[in-house]
Design a binder for these strands. Sequence first.
DNA 1: ATTAGTGTACTATTGAAATAGTACACTAAT
DNA 2: ATTAGTGTACTATTTCAATAGTACACTAAT
Lengths: 127, 127
Amino acid sequence: MMSAQFKTSKPIYSQIADKIVQQFVRGELIPGEKLPSVREMAIQAGVNPNTIQRTYGELERLGVVETKRGQGTFMTEEIDMKRKLRSDIQREIIALFIENMRSIGLEDREIHESVQSFLNGGESGHD
Amino acid sequence: MMSAQFKTSKPIYSQIADKIVQQFVRGELIPGEKLPSVREMAIQAGVNPNTIQRTYGELERLGVVETKRGQGTFMTEEIDMKRKLRSDIQREIIALFIENMRSIGLEDREIHESVQSFLNGGESGHD
DNA sequence: ATTAGTGTACTATTGAAATAGTACACTAAT
DNA sequence: ATTAGTGTACTATTTCAATAGTACACTAAT
């Protein structure tokens, strides 16, 4: 399905991890759901199995997935994880955005207007 | 002045280029101004001269600086460059922001509210 | 016990960024 | 002509993400 285009600026294993977290937060992956095996996911993403191994390892470290040896890798059943992730990520995104806008010398009022203008202007298009 | 902390996710030469562009857009660097030599800038940034060489090369490719062999590297005198850069970068920042927010399933209305909330919330800055 | 599917742990290689060091070419000032 | 300061062009080495391939350990089903 997704041969995926990766950005050069960030490790692929991390980009894949981001994508899984996004799907979880959006509800496209549900708590307890089994993820594709390391080998299968590697095929789907068009990368080496070792890359997925690192992705899953990173996600487990974050508490997003739980691995059961011999059975597979599953989305966590932690009831609050989804909300926590959504909240944390949202905060990160906004902080980065504001930082970037201020870095080019924009005032808060201009930042506010820019967002409004963009959303109304309809330069949409996403994945 | 800036021993600088670099992020691991992006090439250092590119991060330094970004910083120079930001300073130019903010008016801290003016058209025609001479930049530190490759060697001097390397010392200031705490990196290898080759890294700065790549930074200047990239900036020249973008038309942000002009190099005069034997004299140094100077900010471009192109009258519209500052405005163009500011505009382009601003568009990039906003597009990335919107894309990120939508990736975690937020509606445009929620995006708008988040920005408002963040700016009013008072995490540094004012106005 | 065997098998298939899984996670895990290795070793080795490739490619890009960064580092390190050297050398050359141009400009301005003397 | 010489010197200092500059951009530029090399070669070599290191580090890390990614790739490639192999082997082992655990689980469930048969």
